[in-house]
Nucleic acid binder design. Structure first.
Length: 423
RNA sequence: GGAGGAUUCGCCUAGUGGCCUAGGGCGCACGCUUGGAAAGCGUGUUGGGGGCAACCCCUCGCGGGUUCGAAUCCCGCAUCCUCCGCCA
């Protein structure tokens, strides 16, 4: 949700942002009209209500005919107040509904356009030389040979896009997540294990029930949602609170299972564990002052790149185009690892600056000299199940083994190599 | 699943239809006092919205209702606590 004051004072900025995203520009004028309607109906209600209060104060001390006359007048007024209040409520409801429509206003510098209009900020690391003309084996082939990934039984038990991580595969996932959590803790984040079922208002407050509502699993019997990321729970953590940011940002690292329906991605990444319905993730989440959000975003990206370096995979950083941003994000950077088997880049991390957009919906504020104001929220990935893909493929050896990146070794009992089962 | 009880300002609490314009205590902030501090005294201290302003409106868990008037009465819901049942 945007600040109505911004829409009133600088509607052109909002229009430009909506245009860059390829979304509705007219909604700005609809909002301005709804805001005007709300204010005039509210003023009328308040005028009548004040009159009613003044009148009812005189009733107890009146008597006889005078009292009867007052009661008659008060009864009329009571009906008028009721109508005016209903009108004001309707106008407020209409405004509230419209206010959810515009997406966050993009940060200056975000490229306009859609999925393919990103800007590459940098490319880091060398793509592995896997031998002359040799076709790189893909992560599933490697994973199966290591006895690490079992997608067939995943499908048998739960359907397409489910999998078992077995043996060293399970350990490798935990190694990634443990390294991520340790990195976060060292950087001052508070480690958190979060709920994965949340109430509707929390899911909606984070902005995931807009255009991407089909992505979310809903538990109909209990009217709850399964989260696609711990960002949801961490954003809800301080909902309707006034937080204290005087000692710097509040930083949390959430560990959770993540659930995604992957509706509309039929036929895309169907092999292996690149695109799955359930995975684990360690996510950074930061509450900071609005004016610090741009710097905080760079810091989150910095921690993500530290993790990229730790798993020793070649990657690039992209500045996602406006049309490919989630509704809440004002800017998003992705780190994409090189995927040798497909000669393409694969998203491993994503960090979004949601400015005050989420906090406004969720009611997260801070105290300032001039009252309260909404804080900024940011999030970023520090490790997921998918990273197994990039690690297996980039560290595969000609003999079929996989080299373990140095930083992960302590979490794998010191192992330097993962070797195929039965060799 | 059933039966009771609770939900008031950061915390504790008063409040059974108009005297609530929600009182008191704690905490916190500022001031007085002091050589300095403590104590004491005084002032302030929920949040949101409208208005150029004076000022006004809303906010006693949430949503309805009764009434000229609701923290207070009625209905529904949520959360927490206690007990019972069921499951483990």
């Amino acid at each position: 949700m945007l600040d109505l004051r911004l829409i009133r004072e600088d509607p052109d900025r909002v229009r430009a942002s909506q245009r860059a995203r390829g979304e509705s520009v007219d909604v700005v004028d609809q909002l301005l009209a709804a805001d005007e309607a709300r204010r005039s109906s509210l003023t009328e209600f308040e005028r009548l209500r004040a009159e009613q209060k003044a009148l009812s104060k005189d009733i107890p001390s009146a008597s006889g005919d005078e009292k009867q006359a007052l009661l008659v007048r008060a009864k009329e007024l009571s009906a008028q107040v009721k109508d005016a209040e209903a009108a004001a409520d309707d106008a407020q409801r209409e405004l509230d509904e419209l206010a959810l429509v515009p997406s966050n206003v993009i940060v200056d510098g975000v490229p306009a356009g859609g999925e393919d209009d990103y800007t590459v900020l940098r490319e880091v690391g060398e793509r592995p030389d896997l031998g002359t003309g040799e076709q790189a084996r893909d992560h599933l082939e490697i994973g199966e040979s290591l006895g690490a990934i079992d997608t067939e039984r995943g499908a048998k038990v739960s359907g397409a896009r489910f999998y078992f991580l077995t043996g060293v595969g399970a350990q490798l996932e935990l190694a990634i997540l443990n390294l991520a959590l340790a990195t976060a803790a060292e950087a001052g984040f508070t480690p958190m294990i979060t709920p994965t079922l949340v109430r509707p208002e929390i899911m909606s407050g984070t902005g995931f029930l807009g255009a991407h509502a089909d992505e979310v699993y809903r538990i109909e019997a209990d009217d709850m949602y399964l989260v696609g990321t711990s960002e949801v729970a961490l954003a809800g953590y301080h909902s309707n609170e006034i937080v204290d940011l005087s000692n710097g940002p509040l930083r949390y690292a959430g560990w959770s299972a993540c659930y995604r329906r992957e509706a509309g991605s039929y036929g895309k990444d169907t092999r292996g564990i690149i695109r799955v319905h359930q995975f684990h993730k360690v996510e950074m989440f930061s509450y900071c002052r609005a004016e610090d959000a741009v710097d905080e975003h760079e810091r989150l990206l910095g921690w993500e790149e530290r993790m990229m370096a730790a798993i020793e995979v070649p990657y690039r950083v992209i500045d996602t185009a406006a049309g490919d941003l989630g509704a809440s994000a004002a800017r998003k950077y992705d780190c994409e690892a090189w995927l040798p088997s497909q000669s393409r880049w694969l998203e491993l991390t994503s960090t979004s600056n949601c400015t005050t957009f989420q906090a406004r919906r969720l009611g997260v504020r801070e105290r300032t000299d001039g009252g309260t104001r909404h804080v900024a929220t940011l999030n970023g990935t520090l490790g997921t199940t998918r990273w197994i893909v990039a690690i297996l493929e980039n560290h595969q050896q000609p003999d079929g083994s996989v080299r373990v990146p140095v930083a992960l070794r302590p979490y794998l009992g010191g192992r330097e190599l993962l070797t195929p089962a039965g060799t």
